[in-house]
Simulated assay, not measured.
Amino acid sequence: MITAMRILVVGAGGLIGQHVVDRLRRGGHEATTASRTRHAGLDHVVDATTATVADLRPLLAGHDGVVFAAGVDDRRTPRRPAYPVFHRGNVEPVRRLFTAAREEGLGRGVVLGSYYTHFHREHPEWRLAALHPYVRSRVEQARVAREAAGFPVAVLELPFVFGRAGDRQPNWAGPLARWARSGSPLTAPPGGSAATSADRVAETAVTALEQVSGADLPVADENMTWHGMFSRIADAVGRPRRVRRLHPAVLRSALRVAGAANRLSGKESGLDLAHLDRLLTRELFIGVGRPGALDHAIRETFGR
């Protein structure tokens, strides 16, 4: 029998955070919600990037565990050098949060991370952390969370996440939906990505808390080629059409041009555009996948 837990969810206003809260409560657990943006039903307004250990300890008091569902994603293009921005958004908040959790006597935790840490571990020859500031921040995030906590912290390594929570959808969904609905040609390079749903992530997070897991947990339901993903998105938005092949050399040239523009403006991407073509044209797949498993989640994301 599973004992009921009391869990603080930081980043509870986000797509995945909302699913985690819902899954906890449906499982008979108590969820306390914290987010930097006030919304109905929120327990605490807190900015994880600026909150100190002293700020966080009262929020954590009396809880069994904590979930970190906040952070800076890989689309950020700050001024050069980029790494300090990703460090401030992804590493320092978990250091302070899990230090406060240890001091308050909590015993379990979950960090929602990135599947790039999985590939960093499985393919050191790709040099992902050395080449990409965002990936480096996620690798450091996992290490720092566990060092600060001193108790089991599961790191969920997340790929593309489909789904919706009210009006909240993935940050990348809007641009893809507009592209799919437009008159512009749909093109896709070789390669592809693992993908999952927000509900599956929430289920995995709650199970990790219940089992007091400290594992690295890649989460995936399907492995999709870019061609297949874009075609299914076009179907979901009601504009099915052919997806044409994009030659890797064309992708490489476009990314080089974008990288040059960044340099001229003093900016740097979280995923270095000089090396991103090699990453995008790989099959970033996890396990064998289940074809069609995300049909409902894709329709939910894009079908409104």
Rank of each mutant, 00 (worst) to 15 (best):
S197R: 01
V161C: 12
V237F: 08
F160I: 14
N171G: 15
G174P: 05
S231F: 01
R245K: 12
A173R: 09
A188G: 05
A173M: 14
V206M: 08
S193C: 09
T187A: 13
E210F: 02
A198T: 15
F160N: 08
R200G: 04
L158F: 12
A202T: 10
A236Y: 04
F162A: 04
E210N: 10
G183L: 13
G214N: 08
A165F: 11
D167I: 03
G166D: 03
A254W: 13
R242W: 08
R252K: 15
V250N: 02
P189M: 00
T207N: 14
M229N: 01
V257Y: 07
P248R: 10
I233S: 07
S231C: 09
P190D: 01
H227Q: 03
H227M: 01
L251M: 08
G192S: 08
A220Q: 13
S197P: 08
R244E: 04
M229A: 12
D167L: 10
L176F: 09
A194G: 07
W172K: 08
L217P: 13
R164G: 03
T196P: 05
V206Y: 06
V201G: 10
N171M: 10
I233T: 02
A165R: 07
A194Q: 09
H247E: 05
R252V: 03
L209I: 07
P170N: 09
V219F: 06
R252A: 10
G214I: 13
S253C: 06
F230R: 00
D199H: 06
R252N: 03
S213F: 05
R239N: 05
V161K: 08
D216Y: 11
V243S: 00
H247L: 14
A254V: 09
A180R: 07
R241S: 03
P175Q: 11
P185S: 06
P218W: 02
R241P: 04
Q169W: 15
V219N: 00
T207L: 10
P189D: 00
A165V: 11
G192F: 00
V201E: 02
A215W: 07
R245Y: 11
D221K: 05
V250P: 11
D199Y: 01
V161S: 09
W226K: 09
T207S: 10
P159L: 07
E203D: 11
T196Q: 06
P170F: 08
V161T: 11
M229R: 04
A208F: 15
G228M: 11
L186H: 03
P189E: 00
D221S: 09
S231P: 02
Q169R: 13
P189L: 00
P159C: 13
L217K: 06
R200H: 13
G228P: 03
A188H: 05
V250R: 14
S182T: 02
A249S: 14
E203H: 07
G238F: 12
S253Y: 02
D216P: 00
G191Y: 10
T196G: 05
V257A: 14
S197M: 08
S197K: 04
M224E: 03
V206Q: 02
E210Q: 11
D167K: 04
E222W: 03
V257H: 04
R232E: 09
S184K: 15
S213N: 14
A188N: 10
A165C: 15
W172A: 08
A180P: 14
P190F: 09
Q211P: 02
G166E: 01
A249K: 12
